[in-house]
């Protein structure tokens, strides 16, 4: 996979969530994603950025235009050095939440994109990688 360009948005306050999803929508539009896909991407960014604010306090969202096997896509990497997720299987279950939310965040974000990867170590942090390919 080749990264063609990337933007890093630091997530420290809830207001940064709005900024991140707006940047994501702009990038998606520039790359030629449909209006619906732009909305799906912006919504996914909102969910993963909110997880950073809710659980880790601070972190980063990196938005990249990538190319792999002749196809182009938008990659979102949400990374934090927060408490980490003790039970990744549980966190991916619909309706499960430790933060008093709906529990739609991670499993929901997964449904909005094509590729989803979650890695987390307790005490070290969490990285969520999402990709959506241009059709």
């Amino acid at each position: 996979m080749v990264v063609l360009s990337d933007i890093t948005i630091s997530i420290e306050r809830e207001h940064d969530i709005v900024a991140a999803r707006q940047k994501g929508r702009e990038l998606a539009a520039r790359m030629g994603f449909s209006g619906t896909d732009q909305t799906l991407l912006a919504t996914a960014i909102s969910e993963v950025a909110r997880n950073i604010v809710s659980y880790a306090g601070r972190g980063t969202v990196v938005l990249s235009s990538v190319e792999e096997q002749g196809r182009r896509g938008l990659m979102i990497i949400a990374e934090d050095h927060g408490p980490g997720i003790a039970d990744v299987g549980l966190a991916m279950r619909d309706g499960y939440s430790t933060g008093g939310s709906l529990g739609a965040g991670l499993p929901g974000a997964k449904r909005l994109v094509d590729d989803f990867e979650l890695s987390s170590t307790v005490g070290t942090g969490t990285t969520v990688t999402l990709k959506k390919w241009l059709r």
Binding site: G35, T36, T39, L40, A104, P107, G108, R111, L112
Partner: peptide, 14 residues
């Protein structure tokens, strides 16, 4: 609620 927003909400399970 805009059509693409409605679609995203359904995908998200909301």
């Amino acid at each position: 609620i805009q059509p693409e927003v409605a679609f995203a909400m359904v995908q998200l399970g909301l």
